[in-house]
Design a protein around this nucleic acid. Structure first.
Lengths: 362, 362
DNA sequence: ATTTAGCACTTGAACCAAAAGAGTGCTAAA
DNA sequence: TTTAGCACTCTTTTGGTTCAAGTGCTAAAT
């Protein structure tokens, strides 16, 4: 294609590509030295410098300041991407098949909690959280594996209660597309409709046997399944309005926020934390009162949602330790009461309960 | 109540409360000078200093360093919160009524896009986005107003297509609970099932007349309704995996991220941006190629989802300008194709199409 | 004609010391 | 018991100096 030529010599293209990819990789400006040291182009640094100067003049590279390396300009990225797209258009695409997974129904209680969480966030201007009731003995009903690169793939799982979970899995050894397909087949045939405690050694060994020389994939995969099952077993945490926390200087350091988010993702800790409320009513955990270390500068206000005197969910607000407790307490209390009303109403409507226990798994 | 006493003198309580509230308000350590200047306690700064020193010894306050003001300790917050809760327990709680709103069904396409967005985020380690197809002529089917404080309330709205939207509204003048109730009644009776262009001046004047001396609420409320309708009219944007962006130094400055998020919330801009794709296939907007200023350091890769040759949704990935385009392009392309397959399959199932379109989009 | 080596130059980052500013603790007077 | 005043402490800001990285250019080598 002539348009792809752009009048750039092959070497310039090579250098441009090297700069773009090195910058994508590392995020820092790329110097001429780096390129020769990594054998990305075979000539001296001086030559690279000359070429880079020209590439800059042509608009493909930029210099943050005189004594820094080069960074791709927008045009540079554009050139890189266009050439990628071109090369990509001619490639056979391996299309992900995720039919059923995408169409999984979200349960009603999920929706209620989700809305509650959003409302809590809007009312208080902090992050709203909602915790789904325990759904004991979850099983998997479908697996789909998606390759990311030769060492990573994503597991998309649909569970018996209709939740879709995505998990990234890292393989110790590079795997092939065939390996992944085989693993998918095996998981779907062997693991589906098994609860967590039914996945025992014989089953794992069976899987490993089935995978033959790609048995190394079984361990990480099973671990991911376990994790998801346990997460769901212990309930599920959703949050909304994360961005509101960015307003507060407490979270100006991104690491602080990152840690907190990490903790939220790692739901176990939070779940442990709220699963044993001291008060039946509204609870306030201030800073390190919570056993979760990373929350030392944050507070959590939450309230269990009761149904027949049994906790079926939790809603709350997460924010800086110096949150406006007055506002938050009121909001959570109101929303909590409102939801309880809804749930009770639902119960009245369903009327199908025999022993007063819960009737649905989600 | 003896437990509330804690052996603190009334003045100490007053000072503690002042410090807590000032710190909640401002986020900075509170000095003795500040307290007297704002007339929070009526004595000299020296006295306050003495009291604060004692409060610190008692564990209610802390000093970040010698020459800083005081900050509430966890015990301080705890004391404050406990007294709040106590006072709160005796108050009549105004419970929010949001029955139907909470139970609104999320449409299937929403769920598909949501899952797609999550998957995109997992696969690429950036933020996934999904844009819902335009739903022209949305109407509102229910309003619920929730008071935040005398100057702010939240509007929770359920729309004809089943989406629940929450919006915070600021009133120019303080309003009462009765005002809000009346407004809610009026909105539900007058605005429901009207499309955006049917809300005209007579209707607004009618509302204002109905609100009588609280007519000042009508303007902001109608504006919020308008906004929601326009947002939904133009589609809806969802994102997931925001936290992944925190890993990248590009977003180390929280403001950068905050701006970006603000832009995402302000969906119009992004919607404009993607609603006119240059390619039918995969699109890449690099930095300031997008007309959205705030995205100068970010890139957006997206792909329209087609059905009968018509765009019914968009999925994509948002990340730093130096994103791994190779990975992202592949992921988006694959997911997009997959979704197209699903949608087509659905169409095949529904069979409601009169003008037989082409076979498949994938 | 092109590539390479060498060197002077530029410039942000890191570091340090001094000055400024804020708020306290303490003492002595009211 | 409260208040005024002042010395003291500790962070923040400022300014200047050094350091290291990477360049551009010139002259030599291929």
């Amino acid at each position: 294609m002539g348009s792809c030529d752009s009048g750039l010599s092959e070497r310039k293209k090579l250098i441009l590509k090297a700069v773009v990819e090195a910058h994508i990789e590392g995020g820092e400006p790329v110097g001429s030295k780096y390129i020769v040291q990594n054998n990305l182009v075979s000539c001296s640094s001086a030559t690279i410098r000359n070429e880079m100067a020209e590439l800059e003049q042509l608009g493909y590279l930029e210099q943050p300041h005189t004594s820094a390396g080069r960074v791709p300009s927008e045009l540079g990225y554009r050139f890189y991407v266009d050439s990628l797209v071109e090369q990509y258009d001619n490639t056979t695409r391996d299309i992900i098949q995720i039919n059923q997974l995408m169409k999984a129904k979200i349960s009603e209680i999920d929706q209620i909690l989700d809305t509650a969480s959003k409302l809590a966030s809007t009312l208080t201007n902090y992050t709203g959280i909602a915790i789904k009731p325990k759904a004991s003995s979850v099983t998997m009903s479908k697996f789909e594996l998606v390759s990311i690169d030769p060492f990573n793939f994503a597991m998309v799982m649909i569970t018996s209660n209709g939740t879709v979970k995505t998990k990234k899995v890292k393989s110790p050894i590079a795997f092939s597309a065939e390996d992944l397909a085989r693993l998918s087949e095996l998981l779907n045939s062997e693991i589906c409709s098994l609860s967590a405690d039914m996945i025992n050694l014989p089953i794992i060994m069976n899987l490993e046997q089935g995978m033959a020389d790609a048995a190394f994939l079984v361990g990480p995969a099973v671990k991911a399944v376990y994790e998801v099952m346990n997460e769901l077993d212990g309930g599920e945490l959703r949050y909304s309005g994360l961005n509101r926390l960015l307003e507060y200087p407490e979270y100006a350091d991104t690491r602080e926020l990152g840690n907190l988010l990490g903790t939220l993702e790692d739901q176990d800790e939070i779940l442990d934390l709220v699963s044993d409320p001291k008060r039946d009513d509204i609870n306030v955990l201030i800073g390190s009162e919570s056993p979760v270390k990373v929350m030392n500068n944050s507070s959590l206000v939450f309230k269990p949602i009761k149904k027949n005197g049994k906790t079926v969910g939790i809603i709350g607000v997460l924010g800086p330790r110096r949150m406006d407790y007055k506002k938050v307490l009121k909001a959570i209390d109101d929303i909590g009461s409102s939801i309880s009303g809804i749930i009770d109403e639902e119960r009245a409507l369903k009327q199908g309960n025999t022993d007063g226990g819960e009737g649905n798994g989600g």
